[in-house]
Design a binder for these strands. Structure first.
Lengths: 191, 191
DNA sequence: ACGCTTTGTGAGCACTGTAAACATAGCGCA
DNA sequence: TGCGCTATGTTTACAGTGCTCACAAAGCGT
């Protein structure tokens, strides 16, 4: 009641409605367009422009939400990792997120980050910082920044490659196993 | 002469012409559409459909070419890497390729691999195999497959993150340094 | 109660991908 | 040599897209 169906003409909270229907379409795997979300939200094709400058602006907003969820996925119920295997689970969770919400993941990472969008930049930085904290926690003596980039890069790269089918695995479980293996393999290479 | 301007109506080798003008547009950073490449090739808007089923088919062909070049970049003038630093240079070269040809890189990796396109699948596999060979060469005792995935993932992830501005660096040199550092950091973490 | 600002609507433009019917020209075969 | 088949290019057309602009409705402060 509170967020919807007020009168007929004025929607009440179109912005939120647009975001959530857009998110639904993303989850459903439907290709989405500004017009399509407008249609589905029961509103005229140009109404979204009152709330989003651009198609890109809508996507940015979705991406920000995505970053929030990804961060929650990584941080939530886990606390800072304390060991190498804990870090591997980070990577596993990252890839799992990408595979569970492929379209959203693509929106988050598929195109150059719009630097003008502060929220989006901040969200990405938050992720990097979380990684850096985690790695600094496990390896206090190492170059935390380099390690954070490496960790993020590894997780992100594997996510992309599995998402695009460049690497393949039969099930989600198998993906998790392989990501774990990859992570442990590359971190135990220095003899 | 041999590949161009025959009569007026029949182009001679439109397919190749379309591919190369599309590639040029990609390199120039212009957003490309089937119609646009047709226009630029001096041909009617629907002519490309005689040579490519789809927009996707054109992109796949470009991607295949991209994989060829990436492989050449990685293999050429280097031979199989023999040490960990050699492998780091692999990653550096991979990321450098992505930054030097961003649009092409996005075409290669930006969307799910069309499994129906054999050439494209084969090209991607070739890359993975090259990596696996290299890693098996440097670490004969390790799980080559896991290491290859990890190495590819790391390089690919860093490429994406720098490309999207999620990680930042002032110059190409700095990117190279950071990629090297990241690679060396994560491979020397097991004490 | 009046006007200003916010929010939604409508028509319209330039563009895209794609399909279908048509035109041209080169090549194999009589 | 000439005839027709097929490959290749053209035209026309349609639905869908992002986006702009002029208009309409509704809520809010004075």
């Amino acid at each position: 009641m509170s967020t919807s169906e007020k009168s007929g003409y004025h929607h009440g909270d179109l912005r939120a409605a647009l975001l959530s229907t857009a998110m639904e379409m993303l989850e459903a795997g439907e290709p989405f367009s500004l017009r399509a979300v407008a249609r589905r939200a029961g509103v005229s094709p140009t109404a979204p422009y009152r709330h989003f400058k651009d198609r890109d602006a809508l996507e940015s907003a979705l991406a920000v939400e995505g970053f929030r969820e990804l961060l929650a996925d990584l941080g939530g119920g886990r606390g800072l990792p304390a060991s190498l295997p804990d870090l591997a689970e980070f990577a596993v969770a990252y890839v799992a997120f990408a595979l569970r919400r492929p379209a959203l993941f693509r929106v988050m990472f598929g195109k150059p980050c719009d630097d003008a969008d502060d929220e989006r930049v901040k969200a990405a930085d938050a992720l990097h910082d979380l990684l850096a904290d985690a790695l600094d926690h496990v390896f206090p003596d190492a170059d935390a920044s380099a390690l954070a980039s490496a960790g993020w890069g590894l997780a992100h790269g594997l996510a992309c490659l599995y998402l695009d089918g460049k690497l393949q695995a039969a099930s989600g479980e198998e993906v998790a196993d392989r990501v774990r293996s990859a992570f442990l393999a590359i971190t135990s290479v220095g003899s």
